[in-house]
């Protein structure tokens, strides 16, 4: 990639806080600021749209300064701004200003999971009859793949899901009824799915997160169930399967 071309020089002047001495004269024209402002605003607005719970938690001013720092360090690499900010959670985790806010990066990760679920490919979800119709001997070796729109994560020691959903304006309290006032500082898991073309989310136990991790890695049902039981002794596997199927978290088996 050549970096000394005329347009590269303009781009550098747009991304930098103040144009360098060697920047083209046109970048010092007062109206050039229109482009610098529009580009940065485009990035910041995209991050604000993609990370609404983070923005609500920290407030507009704080969010916009963090987003501006991020945009200068990580310009978009795709014309689809709905996907912009893939590293935003990691960036927040590394910022010194967030060291007192350990929940901020996990909340950002959940915002990102929402986006990835929202834009994922369509596929018919597995229904209970897809599993119950199989002969018993086929079940142990059956490989279940998570649905393309399923996103799941466990947040160790941080009630990230509770914090996140109380800061999403699209939250459905009936799906995740824990009131924010009762925040208990402990680990939480989240499962996001997209039945009927709308992203929804629910609490997920450590066992179910390990089960989905194993399925995503191509493990057969027996191995995935074992991984889940090891992570969460006493786990009710029949109930776990029912929950996952009900949420549309699995694909129709081949």
């Amino acid at each position: 990639m050549s970096v000394n071309t005329p347009l590269h020089a303009l781009a550098q002047a747009i991304w930098s806080e103040a144009p360098a001495d060697e920047a083209p004269a046109i970048t010092r024209h007062p109206a050039f600021a229109v482009y610098r402002n529009t580009v940065l605003k485009g990035c910041v607005d995209a991050l604000q749209a993609n990370y609404p719970a983070v923005a609500r938690l920290v407030g507009d001013d704080w969010f916009q300064s963090a987003a501006t720092l991020y945009a200068r360090a990580h310009p978009p690499v795709d014309g689809r701004l709905v996907l912009y900010g893939a590293d935003f959670a990691d960036f927040l985790a590394r910022m010194e200003a967030t060291h007192q806010l350990p929940y901020l990066a996990p909340v950002a990760r959940l915002d990102r999971m929402w986006t990835l679920s929202h834009v994922a490919a369509d596929a018919p979800p597995a229904l209970p009859q897809h599993i119950t119709s199989l002969p018993a001997e086929a079940l142990a070796t059956l490989k279940l793949a998570p649905h393309p729109a399923a996103q799941w994560a466990w947040f160790d020691g941080i009630p990230a899901r509770t914090l996140w959903c109380s800061n999403r304006s699209d939250a459905h309290p009936e799906a995740d009824p824990q009131p924010p006032g009762d925040l208990v500082w402990r680990g939480e898991g989240a499962l996001l799915t997209r039945p009927a073309l709308q992203v929804q989310w629910a609490p997920a136990s450590l066992g179910s997160i390990c089960f989905l991790d194993a399925c995503a890695q191509g493990a057969p049902l027996l191995d995935a169930a074992q991984a889940a039981s090891e992570a969460e002794p006493g786990l009710d596997l029949a109930q776990l399967m029912a929950q996952l199927l009900d949420a549309g978290a699995l694909q129709v088996p081949n």
């Binding site: 990639m1 970096v3 071309t5 005329p6 347009l7 590269h8 303009l10 781009a11 747009i14 991304w15 482009y35 529009t38 580009v39 485009g42 990035c43 995209a46 310009p75 978009p76 690499v77 795709d78 014309g79 701004l81």
Partner: peptide, 17 residues
């Protein structure tokens, strides 16, 4: 207009000579 240099997108419609 232009809106990309290399792999970096600039979300605007930028001028050229």
């Amino acid at each position: 207009a232009w809106s990309r240099t290399g792999s970096h997108y600039l979300p605007d419609l930028l001028p050229f000579q």
